[in-house]
């Protein structure tokens, strides 16, 4: 309990300094944002496809150009918020020995990585602002949820999505304590993410086998579910079981991340000085 209390007391300062760091990295942040513009490319691509041939869901609903615009504008917003880069940080720190300085502090490094990632949120929200304006201009806002309870659940799903992403990052980053580098593992993970998360196309228009597989994988719950909730794909009744599954993934990936970290740190060789 004292560790939790200590963390909570230190968190405001850690977040404040994290925000200062994120602002200091503004040029790097801008470049990173440019690298996450894939949803806009997908939006143009799928809008063009839907103009030539009807795109339908398994339930027979037609996905038109306006639907794709709404979907991918929201995809950009969700992607900005549920992102984490802890895996790359851990890889670099293990290889360079910089992890030593983190381990010397009386604060669990997972908490410090988490607060650092969350501290970048204000800058990211700033980046999403023009896209929110676009949602208004294109009239896409009308397709978004219209009740406070659905928005509240969306927030919950966003937090759950971020946690799954973050824990996966910690787990994969921790693998660098067992192998020379886990960057390639992250690349493999991202390949799956692009197919099964709903990032490249709405899972609703995917072949039924792919939708079924996606339902049993964590990708949908780190990105697809918050996006589906934002685009009004679920009502309260259908959202709740999906949220329960998502938080199941939060628990599972959290346990995996902590276990891999705990065992991995024992193997840390603190290279580089």
């Amino acid at each position: 309990m004292s560790a939790v209390g200590r963390t909570l007391r230190a968190l405001p300062t850690m977040m404040k300094i994290g925000v200062s760091e994120a602002i200091a990295y503004r040029a790097e942040m801008l470049v990173w944002v440019l690298s996450t513009t894939m949803p806009f490319i997908n939006m143009a691509l799928w809008s063009a496809v839907s103009a030539y041939t009807p795109v339908t869901t398994a339930q027979g609903r037609t996905y038109g150009s306006a639907d794709f615009v709404t979907y991918f504008l929201c995809a950009f917003i969700v992607r900005q918020i549920v992102s984490s880069w802890a895996s790359w940080e851990i890889n670099w720190e293990v290889r360079s020995g910089a992890l030593s300085m983190r381990l010397l502090r009386p604060m669990h490094p997972i908490v410090v990585y988490g607060s650092g990632n969350l501290a970048a949120l204000p800058m990211r929200l700033l980046v999403t602002f023009p896209v929110v304006v676009l949602l208004f201009i294109t009239g896409a806002f009308a397709k978004l949820p219209n009740t406070a309870s659905l928005w509240a659940l969306w927030l919950l799903s966003m937090f759950g999505g971020w946690l799954v992403t973050f824990f996966i990052n910690i787990a994969i980053g921790s693998l660098s304590l067992f192998m020379d580098s886990s960057i390639k593992v992250m690349d493999v993970w991202l390949a799956g993410f692009f197919v099964f998360s709903g990032y490249s196309f709405p899972l609703a228009i995917a072949p039924s086998w792919l939708s079924t597989v996606a339902h049993y994988m964590p990708y949908r719950y780190q990105f697809g579910l918050p996006l589906e909730m934002m685009t009004g794909a679920h009502d309260l009744a259908s959202a709740l079981p999906l949220l329960a599954t998502q938080w199941g993934w939060v628990t599972a990936t959290g346990v995996l991340a902590v276990a891999l970290w705990t065992f991995g740190v024992r193997r840390f060789q603190a290279f580089g000085g």
Binding site: R6, R9, A10, P12, T13, M14, I17, S20, E21, A24, Y25, G97, A98, S100, M101, L104, R105, P106, M107, G272, G273
Partner: peptide
């Protein structure tokens, strides 16, 4: 304890050292 390594740094690179001092104040209570 503290381990000071001449070849490792804990100062936040893009921020003034005073920010690292403040961070340590919070973390070390």
């Amino acid at each position: 304890i503290m381990l000071v390594m001449g070849q490792k740094q804990q100062l936040l690179w893009d921020l003034p050292p005073s920010e690292t001092f403040e961070l340590n104040r919070a973390i070390y209570e």
